[in-house]
Structure formats: structure tokens, C-alpha cells
Nucleic acid binder design. Structure first.
Lengths: 206, 206
DNA sequence: ACCTGAACACCGTTCAAGT
DNA sequence: ACCTGAACACCGTTCAAGT
């Protein structure tokens, strides 16, 4: 970061956010420090407090951007013939995105961040989940699903992809001898959960 | 913690572990500090380093105890008529234990802790998973399962319970309007995953 | 209005010195 | 062998003072 020309930065809020994104990517949610972010933005350690109430608020901003990206990734799932197939596809996208942005993902679900005063974060995470709920609703009107309560199915589905993603990010799956790629594992689980559909390899009809 | 009589503590390793357990319970994995643990054990901040190589090693010890407790809880699932029903019961136990010991659980799966040099932790976590694998094997010889590869089913099952537990601990499920208790949600998901069994409320046969 | 510099209370970790 | 005290480099956060 070159020394800036004027005393005032101009767009420090954006600069801090970008530095934070980069730092999270390099060092993970652990090892993330507000001082280091300020250093990279070329300002003193106290400067960020003009733009974010505290460290958690900056991380909340990072998490918010993450949910927006994730939501957009899910929403981009093309319309398939079957509503169930689209749900499976969205699950793949969810897990793939999480594995491509592991530190991002950990910040999004880290304990540091989820506080009610981070309104925009809450909104972004609700919007991402809304994408999932809409897809479930679509599949439901087709009468294709086994679980009939949509919120309940959403919870179930979300648990599957979140669990698969976090275990894969932590390396727990691999360490336990699961060789199936996380994305395939999630797709397999979701396929069964939404009631059959195209049988994936490793599933046999009974 | 009363000041001890002798200069040497006697069983500082145990005392530190217990103080750590209490502190994690009170303040969560965040807000956990080695200095505070030492203070509670009545020793200087440097003393722990005679017994644990660093902070992560103490947390690894905590995590190890957690996996042992969790594994024992799973293993205590009674033998039911059907192998599938036992798997559902074990899922309930898993989620229930996690919700009863949320901070414990977060330490166990926190990024700080999982390093290969923590041999006893790795062993304990493998042993806990082994309980699950054995139950799957039992159900499998009965020919009851939809997914035929046991490791894959283990990964799938574990993802469900881990995902449900962590989302519930984080409050994400409740915040998203899922009113079903996490334990029931996991049981429902697992019931479908292992191929029917007793239909729970909210599931209709198709 | 925005940023700096100094300050405070707190970490994790190391190491010589004490018992 | 085990523990202390002092030290170091680092945090997050606050606040008076500068531009």
C-alpha cells in the first residue's frame, strides 16, 4: 500500500474492507487482526474506528459480502426439468462455493460475527436462504417432495450442505477416510432427501 | 482458588485442564485465555508451559475429553430391533449432546485445535466416529440401507448431525424460522437417509 | 470530519533466576 | 523438575491533539 498523498484517505471504509477480505483469505479468521488491516490500508490502528464500531463490525461486513456472493451463486442455478434436480444442483453449488472460499465461509458462520446489531449481515443471510426456500416451494407445488413442511425441509437441506461443507473445510471427512468429494457427497445425500430423482452412483433402489 | 501450600503445585496439569473446561463453559472458545486459566489455577502465566506446549495443546486436551464423552454417549445407544432405528437414535444423541455442551462442541471442531501433532485428540475423534461406523455396519448386514458404501454413508450421516448441531448452536435455524427442535430435525433427516423406517410426523410415504 | 500518537489493559510466549 | 518475574512483541480500544 503506497503512502497516500493527502492526510485524509478518501475511501478508507472500502480500503479496509478490501484489505480485510485479502487478509482473511491469507491468514484465515484466526490470525486476522484489525491492526494488520489498518497497516495494509496505510493508516494508524485507531483509524478504522471512524468507519466500523469495532473489529466484529468489520468482520460482519466481510460476512455480509460472503452471503451476497453465495446467494448469487445459488440463484444462478439454471431451471431444470425437475424441481428436485434444481435443489440437488443448488446443493452442489453451495458446497463448491464454500470449498472455494473456506476462510470466507468460516467468517460467515463464526461466532464473532452473528449479532443482531449487524442488520445488513442478517438481511444478506436471510436473502441467501430465501433463494433456497423459493426453490423448495417450486419443487413442492410439483408435489415431488417427501417432507411436506417447506421450512422444515429447508432446515434439513441446509444442515446437510452446511455440515458437509464445514467437515470438508476442516479436513475431517478426508481424515476419516471418506474419499468421495464433498460436493458429490452432498449431492448424494440431498438426492435421497428430496426423494429419489435420478439415482446417483452408490445409491441402489430397494 | 485458594493459594496452595507448597511452591510446587502437585497436579497442575489436571488443575489446568479442569480450569480450562470451566472457562470454556463460561466464556466460550472466544474469550478463552491461557492467562486466565493460569490465574484460576493459582499459578503464573508461564507455568502452563511446563505441562502444555502452547495454548492449542491445552485446547486439544479439552477437545479430546469432549470426543471421549461424545463417543461414550453414542455407544450407550441401546440395541433396538432395527439397525436403522439405532442409527436414528444415535443421531438424536449426537445432536442432543452437542446442544447440551455447545462450547465444548465448538472447541472440538474449532480451527485452533486440529493439528496432527495432537495424537490423542486424533485418536479420540477417530474412536467416536468408529462407534458410528460399527452401527452402520450392523445395519448394513441386515441389508437395510439405501447407500451401500459404509464410509460414504458415514460421511453423509455425520454431515447431517454436524450440520444440524452447528446451525442450532449458532442460532441460525431458529433465526430462519425453523421451529422444529434440532434433535427432531436431525432424526427426521436421518430417518429418510437410512431408508424409511418408522415414518416420523411430517413425512408422508409416496 | 477524519486521522495520528500515545496510552491502557490485555494477550501468548520465552527465559533467566529462584525453590 | 517445577514455578516465578520480568521481558518482548503483539492485540483491541479510547482519547486528546493535530490537519
Amino acid at each position: 500500500m503506497p503512502p497516500r498523498s493527502s492526510y485524509h484517505h478518501g475511501d478508507l471504509r472500502r480500503a479496509l474492507t478490501e484489505a480485510a477480505l485479502a487478509l482473511v483469505g491469507e491468514r484465515g479468521p484466526k490470525g486476522f487482526s484489525l491492526s494488520e488491516v489498518a497497516r495494509r490500508a496505510g493508516v494508524s490502528a485507531a483509524a478504522p474506528y471512524r468507519h466500523f464500531t469495532d473489529k466484529a463490525a468489520l468482520l460482519a461486513r466481510v460476512a455480509q459480502l460472503g452471503f451476497e456472493q453465495l446467494g448469487a451463486t445459488l440463484a444462478a442455478a439454471p431451471d431444470r426439468g425437475s424441481g428436485r434436480d434444481r435443489l440437488v444442483d443448488m446443493s452442489r453449488r453451495y458446497v463448491r462455493w464454500a470449498l472455494e472460499h473456506p476462510d470466507f465461509y468460516l467468517v460467515m458462520f463464526g461466532a464473532e460475527v452473528k449479532r443482531p446489531e449487524h442488520v445488513e449481515l442478517v438481511r444478506a443471510s436471510e436473502a441467501a436462504l430465501e433463494v433456497l426456500l423459493a426453490a423448495i416451494e417450486d419443487a413442492r407445488v410439483g408435489g415431488e417432495l417427501v417432507i411436506d413442511d417447506p421450512t422444515r425441509l429447508a432446515g434439513s437441506l441446509w444442515s446437510v450442505v452446511h455440515g458437509t461443507a464445514t467437515l470438508a473445510i476442516g479436513g475431517e471427512l478426508q481424515q476419516s477416510g471418506v474419499v468421495t468429494p464433498a460436493e458429490d457427497l452432498a449431492a448424494l445425500t440431498i438426492t435421497i432427501l428430496v426423494g429419489g430423482g435420478t439415482p446417483a452412483p452408490g445409491v441402489r433402489s430397494r
